[in-house]
């Protein structure tokens, strides 16, 4: 077994295990912590696929920023009652279970069926994950959308301040 396969299996098991923990834990904080671990495992998976930049961004944005936000919200809302909550069986649960079963069936069919794609990375996608390559593309082909999206971020920041400002002094 090559190192690549061992790494992949370890990370995949970790990702699935933390994913299951996330939905089974009743305590919101431990659910959040397992989600953070899940993100770390995912970013490891990206590394095995040669997507270094994506892996770094995954940790920075999701495990870092988003999860801090989630933990803060849990802290501020003080969700103590969650642990005592008992779930009753209702039609919505039935629909959820049916949909999940359909998804699992589809995944099983996909993975056991005849493979149509190639398992090897193409030469272009070997390079695609490196920060240098992304930088090159971002500042040449995609320079215009790159600049234009800064406008979107500016509008969003200004807008959130306008809407959230408590008092308006004039």
């Amino acid at each position: 077994m090559s190192l690549h396969v061992i790494m992949f299996s370890l990370l995949a098991i970790l990702a699935i295990a933390t994913g299951v923990l996330l939905v089974t834990r009743r305590n919101p904080v431990s659910a959040a912590v397992s989600l953070i671990l899940h993100f770390f495992a995912l970013s490891g998976l990206y590394l095995t696929l040669n997507a270094q930049f994506l892996a770094a961004v995954q940790i920075l944005v999701y495990a870092g920023a988003i999860m801090v936000l989630v933990v803060f919200v849990i802290m501020l809302l003080n969700l103590g009652k969650e642990q005592n909550m008992r779930e009753n069986f209702n039609p919505r649960t039935a629909i959820t279970i049916a949909m999940s079963a359909a998804l699992i069936m589809q995944l099983v069919l996909t993975f056991t069926g005849n493979p149509t794609g190639k398992n090897q990375l193409s030469a272009a996608s070997e390079k695609i994950g490196s920060p240098a390559e992304i930088g090159n593309i971002l500042y040449s082909t995609y320079i215009f959308p790159f600049e234009a999206i800064s406008l979107l971020l500016l509008v969003a920041v200004v807008g959130s301040i306008i809407l959230a400002k408590r008092t308006v002094d004039k």
Partner: peptide
């Protein structure tokens, strides 16, 4: 399509506010 998306979002976010 990328420009289309950015344009629609800049417009919509301004409208939300």
């Amino acid at each position: 399509l990328l420009i289309l998306f950015i344009g629609i979002e800049v417009m919509s976010v301004s409208f939300y506010i």
